[in-house]
Design a binder for these strands. Sequence first.
DNA 1: GCTTGTGAAGTCATTCACAGCG
DNA 2: CGCTGTGAATGACTTCACAAGC
Lengths: 195, 195
Amino acid sequence: MPLYHRALADLSARGVATASSAELAASLGLNPATLRRDLSHLGSLGLRGTGYEVETLLGSVRRALALDRDWPIAICGAGHLGLALARSEGFSSGHFRVAALFDVDGAKVGTTLGGCLVHHLDELAAMVGDEGIAIGVIATPANAAHEVAGRLLAAGVRALVNFAPVVLSLPPGARVRQVDLSAELEVLAHYGARR
Amino acid sequence: MPLYHRALADLSARGVATASSAELAASLGLNPATLRRDLSHLGSLGLRGTGYEVETLLGSVRRALALDRDWPIAICGAGHLGLALARSEGFSSGHFRVAALFDVDGAKVGTTLGGCLVHHLDELAAMVGDEGIAIGVIATPANAAHEVAGRLLAAGVRALVNFAPVVLSLPPGARVRQVDLSAELEVLAHYGARR
DNA sequence: GCTTGTGAAGTCATTCACAGCG
DNA sequence: CGCTGTGAATGACTTCACAAGC
């Protein structure tokens, strides 16, 4: 669904008014039927014989993804990865905003890195409440990930993106998206060796 | 499969000799049957009544993932993300090694960032040959991703990790792993709004 | 004409449940 | 006994194929 959102935002920016499932699917490398069925979950939005109206569909996808409001994010870990994420397009542009950067290193706390003031992790709970943070990003070393996840959950954050190579066991009601850099490389190594 | 590799490497480092499918699965949050079926693809490695011998199984998984050799990697894009990746554990420790960092920015080329000399993208083809690079990482802005992917493929690199928010259309025989930061946030926003 | 939305079929992955083995 | 490996059942997705509609 995020893919559809991006494809439609592109078309919208380019001023395209309508697009058929075949065109959309081709631009995303998907089967047209898959795309039609996915979009049908949002309602009957297509015009038979014509396709989909880009602006209308974009609005529906945006609502489905709850991108019609702003999502403040907390990034935990102000190392290289945390800073890179804080400055990346995906995290700051559009519907997401890096509300705070946290670390436990006294040398970093209080300084401004990448345009963001670094707070101590102890301030997490307070800032989650003040800023309305609902999404937490774990960009710490592996051995700190569990504790940071626990603190985020305790502060009321129930949606996490975890970049640490650790499987987080979470209580029901909490969601985690795991982003595992070395796992990506390992599957490529597997396929690479087979050629 | 990379998850199994990591779990087994952990157990091995902690000196554990054997583990049952139930124990392994619990530590990864999986169903034991799923794990047994996955491992059965590697052969009949378990000891009935006992479980799996950690070292033996680790060796088999390592071979299956082709991690019994070194994989030199090229990172294209020496921005914040590219540098963070170059310094990350996952990319340098173990079986992977950042062999070269590339950019097109003349101000960066020739300097040493994060312990790596930055080469101009024009040197890509030569260095792929010299270093035996088989995996390329795209850490460029979205609008440069297509061209960089093309250059990597032209140089003979057929395995890519793409961090740019662009769907790459590749010739058959090439593999891509897409890592999409904003897509992760968007699915969390979707679920977050439903609670 | 062309394109959607959707039953029906097909494919792939997960899970159950148990025979077979150490 | 306990645990693996695996048929068989279940579920989730994908794709086909076509009737319904602009």
